[in-house]
Design a protein around this nucleic acid. Structure first.
Lengths: 171, 171
DNA sequence: AATTAAAAGTACCAAAACGGTACTGTATAG
DNA sequence: CTATACAGTACCGTTTTGGTACTTTTAATT
């Protein structure tokens, strides 16, 4: 569906919150409270982020989580890599055994690979520190400042669709 | 999961095949045969592509499908727009009512929107004609020519993951 | 006019992924 | 020793996705 999972969304939200309050540890419960998310969910996300060394954890009383590196060294691509279940890639190549490319011999594949690279670079260009200071976005390749129609108030971590098409819209 | 659906994958495959054999109409059955896909699946994809005016259809005997425009005017983003179920966007903003951004007030949203834009531009930069001639990729912003590890032979339309990470890999 | 080829539409079902929760274990501070 | 907080595992309900079947409509050929 070309969409990040909710857990990834939560991950960026949590990391951004932590980056906005540096120098202290955050309990999973505190983060859940502050962000309006369920505690088990937040725990799960933090655990995974810890496994990927994006946050460090301290167990026991007065324990909690802290960023494992400066926020400007944690990119959105890092968060996706940690929290998305499948590895990064717009298409799947493994699994399923049927041969397809009888004729075209899947020359398309290498094009997809290049597209993947471009998309990934876009995701690597943004880090958590950027997320804390929204107006400061210097790392964005091509802002394309038009069309900002978004519906509904702040809700998840989420972005509304930038050019949410009706049908046939060509941008 | 940050991945296009199989139907979208099939869509690019079908369109690319048609672009490689211009000037004639293609029956759904013929395409299914040539590409090793199920006929009902191919029909479904073509129907949707027709609804979005990427292909034109001719009913009746000796009917079939043809590209509705020159292949260099059909972008990958167009195909995604036609075949993905949800509208384009890396995160969802609508649906679900729980408030979250108690503290951070979802400043992250506008960053996601910019990321969306960049990703979309990458997808718009590639068209079906590019897919037919793979070595010809001039429209790709930043090739990033390293790491081409792919596993398994040609299978779907699919791309193998470009930098398929094990864990903790930072590109 | 009848027949046949081929797309269009609708509906449905099975499998997989996602999101969320519960339960149990382990470490640390006081 | 107890309370707090992270760690790991396992599970379940919901949603999405992929694929199939069946019926209808259109057009060409005989």
């Amino acid at each position: 569906m070309l969409r990040i999972s909710k857990l990834t969304d939560y991950g960026t939200l949590i990391l951004t919150h932590m980056a906005g309050h540096p120098g202290r540890v955050h309990s999973a419960a505190g983060l859940a409270e502050a962000l309006g998310l369920g505690l088990p969910t937040v725990s799960k996300v933090l655990k995974t982020l810890g496994r990927h060394e994006l946050v460090s954890s301290q167990r026991g009383a007065h324990g909690g989580y802290a960023l494992a590196r400066p926020p400007n060294r944690i990119t959105v691509a890092d968060v996706i890599d940690a929290l998305e279940e499948q590895a990064f890639g717009l298409t799947e190549c493994s699994s399923s055994s049927g041969v397809c490319a009888i004729e075209s011999d899947c020359r398309i594949r290498e094009n997809w690979m290049r597209i993947n690279t471009v998309v990934r670079q876009a995701l690597q260009a943004v880090n958590i520190a950027d997320m804390v200071h929204p107006g400061h976005g210097a790392a964005f390749p091509a802002p394309h400042p038009t069309e900002h129609r978004m519906h509904g108030p702040a809700r998840s971590a989420a972005a509304c669709l930038p050019g949410a098409r009706t049908d046939e819209q060509e941008i």
